[in-house]
Design a protein around this nucleic acid. Sequence first.
DNA 1: CTTTGAACCACAATCGATTGCGGTATCGGA
DNA 2: TCCGATACCGCAATCGATTGTGGTTCAAAG
Lengths: 337, 337
Amino acid sequence: MSSRATIADVARLAGVHPGTVSRALNRKTESQVNPETVGRVRSAAKQLGYTPNSIARGLRTSSSMTVGVIIPDLTNPIFPPIVRGIDSHLAPLGYSAVVVNTDGSDQAERLLFESLVQRQVDGFIFATGHSGHSIAGEAYERGIRAVMVNRDSRGVPFPAAVGDDAQGIRESLHHLWNLGHRRIVHLAGPPGFSTSQIRAESFVSECAVLGIQGEVVQTAAYSVEAGQATMDLILERPGPRPSAVVAGNDLLALGVYHSLRTHGLRCPDDVSVVGFNDMPFAGDFQPPMTTVRAPHFELGAEAARLLVNQIEHSILTALRVVLPVELIVRASTGPVA
Amino acid sequence: MSSRATIADVARLAGVHPGTVSRALNRKTESQVNPETVGRVRSAAKQLGYTPNSIARGLRTSSSMTVGVIIPDLTNPIFPPIVRGIDSHLAPLGYSAVVVNTDGSDQAERLLFESLVQRQVDGFIFATGHSGHSIAGEAYERGIRAVMVNRDSRGVPFPAAVGDDAQGIRESLHHLWNLGHRRIVHLAGPPGFSTSQIRAESFVSECAVLGIQGEVVQTAAYSVEAGQATMDLILERPGPRPSAVVAGNDLLALGVYHSLRTHGLRCPDDVSVVGFNDMPFAGDFQPPMTTVRAPHFELGAEAARLLVNQIEHSILTALRVVLPVELIVRASTGPVA
DNA sequence: CTTTGAACCACAATCGATTGCGGTATCGGA
DNA sequence: TCCGATACCGCAATCGATTGTGGTTCAAAG
């Protein structure tokens, strides 16, 4: 490892004290040193290829220009766009993101969280919010800066950037209504997630508005397997089957596809399904999926903005930024038979 | 921000010198201090909830327990599993991964690279290798530790963890041969990538073995759009059309799907297509895609292992770890009409 | 009873930056 | 000529850990 130039080397070359070099090189303190000296220091720094050691700086300033991003599972396709959005806002400001996966385990999350705190990250972006999310609450009490993205933690007053779940469900329902569907079930995500709750609530309230009896069935997870298993149950019980299902997200919807297929049913001819998120390649599924597009990239960018505000200006408003969503109609929904 | 306990606090409480605390708390140096004292220090540390400040430690030891992971684009679905694999190996060892996206831009990559060097990362994992990849060469000359994953940089003697591209192509071709296909084109990825080159080379050599005239057509990028555009060209030129296409990766194969559809052709009835990578949800496409499964998670883990070996034991063998791949036959391939 | 050596631990330097404080030089005004 | 204000910059402390060096204690060996 070739040793890099330090501030002392620059000082020596420029013939000034290290402290002066530090001041000359920082915008905020540049005014405290003679412009001519600044020039001399600048060129000495360039000549040596000097770049400040951010570890040393971090030790002194107790900031690491790093934020921790805690997500359940990077291989869930909605998260990469969120991470990209976060990065797009953070990188130009000189921050780096350390992203970690919890696999949905609170215990893993706690470990990761502590390890990032120990690393002196300047703040957190949680994509793991849920009711009873003690880690966020703890973070808040310890005075740690954080924001929630996509989902929020019930009762923890961190800012959050989320999609307009209610609007998305409303649009889905109206779309189905216009197609003639009256017997509709909502495959709700697991309880405890704000997304599950809001989507389910707005499903029932909008069904009331439309005057149809909507049924909500809970799933065990936001996964293809859970979607399939739950749909299996619905199809195998006695009584008439629904003509359409509003899935809590695209993964569940995909599970519904699988279930329909194994039961010899066709989509949308026999039952229509609409997803949520418009994850990548949703339009390439069999059939191309009608779903609600959530602006994940922007959600990430917005969350990063909220966090930086908090870090740099100590602005901690219990802000909730809600971004609009859009129904993308493809081929998994059709007129009722 | 509530001030955390420092090593001095622990020292005070345990009635020893901070240096002793440091030794008592580190496995490597624990033997240098009286077991009884170790116990005293340990309990004092626990009582205060002491965790070492890794920034301070990093300054002294000039290591950050952080590695930079440089990938083209996290939203390309093959990368999340790689990142997970990297993380799975790194996290238990106490390392964190900082992953950044270059969007395929060498200039962006250079900026990101320098910013990570400045952050004192202990090493790099490049998923951006290509011929003329000057950044890797530069890193090598500067004595920076790094490994390549998925692809390698021609001529840069960093270790690499890659899939067995040749085997994958061979299996694809044999599968198609057995189905009766004799007129096959290979949609090769953009030149400069080792994956493109190896896959194309093994395509022509295996065609020679089988005694069929294989054609390879290059694409501009590993993307759906490039795949569609290139396939459009192939379908619209005069002469007989191929009965099967071996795509350089799943994204290209998906582009082929689109092209076939817009030309009123059906897959696999009119033309069979096989992809490469078996990206998530490849089995849910229309039709479910026959493709070569590459062990991305394991590739990531292997790359991390290679890097840690280098960092901790200075083992820099120009090692090339090649992991086996497996053909997954689904519904996009069928007997020739 | 002295010497030797091992075991244990304290001291202080060190990593590379930032920053409060104080000293010097310069200049204008009285 | 002297004083005070201002601008500039150096000094040294500091962040919180790690680690080389050396001193003390104690037991075993001579």
